[in-house]
Design a binder for these strands. Structure first.
Lengths: 241, 241
DNA sequence: TGTACATCAGTGAACGCGCGTTCACTGATGTAC
DNA sequence: TGTACATCAGTGAACGCGCGTTCACTGATGTAC
């Protein structure tokens, strides 16, 4: 999980190993019992030490949560990246769909962790500004953007129209473009976020059981169909339709 | 809130009034402190009675939650319906956008309650099958469907293509159509749910602060732009584009 | 109309539970000379 | 190479907190005769 120099002292290596173990156990506990049962005491119990000892590794419950959330964002980003990589030779829409389905699949296989990232905020917890959770969160968006705009020319990206109407909106989109993704354009970012929102909405409604009338395999096929439509729209946007 | 016959006895009227007060206080407490602080004890404290007394009105914490969730779904459905009503003479897309923005607005103004309906499941709580929460939930979908398919001819509804590929999916969509909305078609339901998902995804990402780079008013304009696009797509679908 | 009884609303006391965090302490590991 | 000291990992005991639920009980409201 973390990387330790081989030259590290016994104590340093043990310490790193223990931190790894704590995080691993916490993730397993989270997966098996959900967020509401994720307490320092429960983790300590499962690791086999007393609660107080955890304080040698994490300053507080919040510090552990930060580690877990950052880990989750990174794991999600890794999964998406891996899917994007194995579909490098696939068609544009097919690759978009594959990565989107990977997002959905990861959410279902890691439900409590996914909800920790994108569900209700944890009471009393505030992620540190520009901390590891936010850096890792941007990675997720980055992989999506990479896939959505793969093969677009700079002209095609620049040609995506900015939502009309509000100049303040256009200004903020321009600012966001410069700050986060200078190779994109305000219009492209607006559409990108809209596409992600549709994927996210489908995943959320499904994950939280608001699509009860679709069962497992069928739900996947439904998502595939809707996401293919979404991919087609993005392709049309690229081609200036 | 609830309706009581004027002929009811003193005891019956008092009882109804108390139940109303408990629900009202619980909703206020929820709005002010979030779900995680919503306990029977907190509600009792605020109502001004002991916890045990609550058990005369609600069998358990879960029964109170059921009442709150059902209330929330109904309030949301009422808001959407009211918006739909005041926009009866507006254009198709404009009305769709107005109702969608009402959804978003309600979510923001009632964040903890909205998350109670559509966010993380409450630990240990399971809504009674076909109970009041589910009935009220279907009302919300019903208002949306009414707005989305307003003015469509039966032919236009029937002409919406079912997602290709999986016969099992087509079968389940047909089943859902017959069970829940016989005036619609499998293809129409599939697209309807996809549209709702995009709206829902936008609302969720925004509500839970994953669009930090858009501030308040601008975020509304962004939503208006994206939802107008969505409305245009629905109109195109109606016209068989 | 008054009386006996049943039902309901509310309280006091207690149950057993889990939580995050702090403090004072012991023994092992590491380091400077 | 050995020794004195600093740092770190871990424990035992305790802090004060809030939770849902149950039990036995009192006094008010309602009802049948």
């Amino acid at each position: 999980m973390s990387v330790v120099k081989p030259s590290a002292s016994l104590r340093e290596r043990r310490r790193a190993a223990t931190i790894d173990e704590i995080v691993t156990v916490a993730l397993r506990h989270l997966a098996e019992h959900g967020v509401h049962e994720l307490s320092l005491r429960a983790v300590a119990r499962e690791v086999g030490m007393t609660v107080q000892a955890l304080y040698h590794y994490f300053d507080s419950r919040d510090a552990l949560l930060t580690a877990l959330i950052a880990h989750g964002q990174n794991a999600l980003a890794d999964t998406l990246q891996a899917t994007a990589d194995t579909h490098r030779d696939a068609g544009y829409v097919e690759r978009c769909v594959a990565v989107s389905l990977a997002y959905r699949d990861w959410a279902h296989r890691n439900k409590p962790l996914f909800l920790l990232l994108y569900g209700n905020p944890v009471p009393g917890y505030a992620a540190p500004e520009d901390g590891p959770t936010m850096v890792a969160g941007r990675r997720v968006a980055g992989v999506f953007a990479e896939v959505v705009f793969a093969g677009w020319t700079a002209e095609q990206i620049a040609a995506v129209p900015v939502p009309a109407g509000d100049p303040a909106l256009a200004a903020q989109l321009t600012g966001a473009t410069q700050a986060m993704a200078p190779h994109l354009s305000p219009g492209a970012i607006a559409q990108f976020l809209g596409a992600w929102a549709q994927l996210h909405g489908l995943v959320m409604l499904d994950l939280l059981n608001h699509m009860r009338w679709l069962d497992g395999d069928t739900a996947t096929e439904y998502h595939r169909a809707m996401l293919t439509q979404l991919g087609d729209r993005l392709a049309a946007l690229r081609d200036g339709a």
